[in-house]
Amino acid sequence: MPAHLNAIGVATPTHDVHHAFIDWAQARLAPAPARLFARMARRAGIGHRWSVLPPTAAGASPVGAGGFYADTMPGTAARMAIYATAAPALSLLAVEALAARVPIDGITHLVVASCTGFVAPGLDQIVARRLGLAPSVERLLIGFMGCYAAVAALRSARHIVRSEPAARVLVITCELSTLHLQDSDAPEILLAQLQFGDGAAAALVTADPVGFMLDQPFAATLPDSHDLIRWAITDRGFAMHLSGEVPRRIAEGLADADFRDIVTAGRGPAGIDGWAVHAGGRSILDAVAGALALPDDALDAARGVLADNGNMSSATLMFTLERLLAGPRIDHGVALAFGPGLAAEGFGFRSAA
């Protein structure tokens, strides 16, 4: 029984912190690195990044006077206290957006992906309770898989529907990356932090032939790459390491003919008419486009998500799929995301008949 991604609803906070962060970061750098940072920020392809952290009473950003990060870097407990309230609220906004597109009654399974915070009872239980889901709903919480966690969530939903054709699976991805700003004057760390924003997405996966049919998933870990993307839980939040080597290693992986065949199900890049690539950054999208010799407009949906929201970790791929669902018919699509490992995960998809 084929599984279908019927619809997606997305949500972001209302506080745009992107340009305030750029000003804050540049002020921490010596003149030469500051000029480099400014040039890289202009080339990043990001216009907005949204945060659950509110403006101050005077309208300042979280890094401004009186803001969450103004005087000292808050501890992990303070950051997780915000996650415990903000993550469920943002997730429910995404569910509301989904419910405006497709009925979400009769949910039998709930799959939640989130790697920017922890709370117990988990985000899955909080959301299930607030939505009034039946106590019998089966739940799965996916954590700390990073940017490809949306693939794991949708893959799990596909497996559920294929084994239980009557299942109605609600999939939620919610990431609050701006809770993890780190006190650093290292340009490479500031450039990594420049990418990330907050967002949530909700999707319905069923056997109903509506939306995108989810085809065969795939996964591959690039050799000797486990240190390129990693998170460390510190006393001052989650510290992310994002190596500048990541785009090159992704391009090298996609240049391998066997891996390209896995990604494209043997059709080759020319046989794919829809690309949902995780918008991890402009350099990553450029690496994918260059390695696969894609047309200039092939990654427009991903580049649009990056421009409007930055990298929202696991939610980003869902935002891209949401845009593709609203577009022309796709006969052979590929969803592809990268994350800690360095690993690439994805799946094929096609418009329902």
Results as ranks from 00 to 15, higher is better:
3 A>M: 01
3 A>D: 01
4 H>C: 12
4 H>L: 02
5 L>W: 05
14 T>A: 12
14 T>E: 13
16 D>W: 00
16 D>V: 03
26 Q>K: 13
30 A>F: 01
33 P>I: 08
34 A>T: 11
38 A>Q: 13
41 A>C: 12
42 R>F: 02
42 R>M: 08
43 R>F: 01
45 G>V: 02
50 W>M: 02
54 P>G: 08
56 T>L: 03
66 G>L: 04
71 D>P: 00
73 M>S: 15
83 Y>Q: 07
88 P>S: 13
92 L>T: 09
94 A>L: 07
95 V>D: 02
96 E>Y: 00
99 A>C: 07
113 A>P: 09
117 G>A: 07
124 D>M: 09
128 A>T: 08
131 L>Y: 07
131 L>S: 10
132 G>W: 06
134 A>Y: 00
135 P>A: 13
136 S>C: 08
139 R>P: 10
140 L>H: 12
144 F>A: 14
146 G>S: 13
157 A>K: 04
160 I>C: 09
162 R>L: 10
165 P>Q: 08
166 A>Q: 15
169 V>S: 10
173 T>N: 10
174 C>E: 12
174 C>R: 04
174 C>F: 07
175 E>Y: 09
176 L>F: 05
177 S>Y: 04
180 H>R: 10
183 D>N: 13
190 L>V: 14
193 Q>N: 14
201 A>H: 07
203 A>W: 02
209 P>S: 08
210 V>N: 10
211 G>W: 05
211 G>K: 07
213 M>C: 07
219 A>Q: 05
224 D>E: 15
232 A>V: 04
236 R>G: 02
241 H>L: 14
243 S>I: 12
247 P>I: 01
248 R>L: 08
250 I>P: 07
251 A>V: 00
274 G>P: 05
278 H>P: 10
285 L>D: 09
286 D>T: 02
288 V>H: 02
299 L>M: 06
302 A>Y: 06
302 A>F: 03
303 R>F: 08
303 R>Y: 11
310 G>D: 06
312 M>Y: 11
316 T>R: 07
317 L>A: 10
318 M>L: 15
320 T>C: 14
330 I>T: 14
334 V>L: 05
334 V>C: 09
335 A>L: 04
336 L>I: 11
341 G>A: 03
347 F>Y: 08
349 F>N: 03
349 F>H: 03
351 S>K: 12
352 A>T: 11
